[in-house]
Simulated scan of single mutants.
Amino acid sequence: MESEFLDKVEDNAAVRIWSENMQLEKGDSLAEGYTLELWDFTRISVTQNEFQELRDIWAGWGDETKQLFYQNFGDLPYLLDIKVDKNLFRAITQFWNPAYSCFTFGKVDLVLTVEEYTTLLHCPKVQIDRVYFKAANAQPFVKKLMSITGISEQWVTARIQQKCDGKCILWVSLRDLIVAHPDMKKKVDVFTLSIYGLVIFPKALRHIDEAVANLLIGLTKGPYGCQRF
């Protein structure tokens, strides 16, 4: 699959330059006058989710399913082949800023915005003006998963777990659903949820957090706030 994305390297470099210019022009998320205080000592774990099952699912799809994915969610599968430099993460740990939950170097924060993610990954249908909006009467996690998966409340409820300080669903449950789902659009949606939950915003190993469902629904809301699901 890696060869399919080699032509994106130059585009990604252009996005990086654009991102840096936009941050210099419009400023970043750090409060004016904020000074980063570096930690004297910290311990980190660089354990990450294994992506081979995601790669296998993607490799087994036909062109029609892959094109549907690209049309709705861009180049997310590209991330499955990115090699994480664990030594680099250990080196920059001292720049982790707990106040903003990101890496900061002087007055620059090293965390992509949703806009930068979607530009980098060529997500064509993302409604940026909807992503950061949180409905006053937000649906419970069960309803969100029912919306995304198209599966019954009984199935979803039986698979939701409490993990750390929030709710989540096991990756193995979504994996089995992706493989067996008769609806190609729902299959793509659940696969996308899994990439966001395991690759981009992982919280607990082999689990997809509720916040990722919120993000996916926000990314795919229509022009009048109606969800595509």
Rank of each mutant, 00 (worst) to 15 (best):
153 E>I: 00
142 V>D: 06
88 L>D: 03
54 L>T: 06
189 D>T: 05
121 L>F: 02
28 D>N: 11
224 Y>A: 06
155 W>S: 11
181 H>D: 15
123 C>M: 15
212 V>M: 03
109 D>V: 02
228 R>L: 11
107 K>G: 09
187 K>W: 06
224 Y>T: 01
99 A>M: 07
211 A>D: 12
57 I>H: 12
162 Q>E: 15
1 M>G: 13
86 K>R: 14
111 V>Y: 03
9 V>A: 13
194 S>M: 08
177 L>C: 06
173 S>A: 09
98 P>A: 01
122 H>L: 08
62 G>T: 07
136 A>L: 10
205 L>Q: 11
149 T>W: 03
13 A>C: 11
177 L>E: 09
63 D>M: 07
156 V>C: 04
1 M>R: 06
52 Q>I: 14
82 I>Q: 14
75 D>A: 09
215 L>N: 01
175 R>E: 11
175 R>S: 07
49 N>A: 07
58 W>R: 03
87 N>R: 10
75 D>Q: 10
208 I>F: 05
157 T>A: 15
52 Q>C: 07
81 D>Q: 14
36 L>F: 11
212 V>P: 00
13 A>N: 10
39 W>D: 14
8 K>L: 15
51 F>W: 10
22 M>V: 02
181 H>E: 11
13 A>H: 10
157 T>S: 15
21 N>W: 09
164 C>D: 15
39 W>G: 11
13 A>L: 14
130 R>Y: 02
77 P>G: 08
88 L>R: 09
118 T>N: 08
72 N>P: 06
17 I>D: 15
149 T>G: 03
191 F>T: 03
81 D>N: 13
63 D>G: 05
123 C>W: 05
168 C>N: 05
190 V>H: 10
214 N>R: 01
176 D>L: 09
205 L>R: 13
119 T>A: 12
141 F>Y: 12
141 F>V: 00
53 E>P: 05
215 L>R: 01
192 T>P: 04
112 L>D: 03
83 K>Q: 12
184 M>V: 14
125 K>L: 13
58 W>N: 09
187 K>V: 05
117 Y>H: 07
190 V>K: 12
66 K>C: 09
175 R>C: 04
74 G>W: 00
87 N>S: 15
173 S>D: 11
98 P>C: 01
127 Q>N: 09
41 F>S: 14
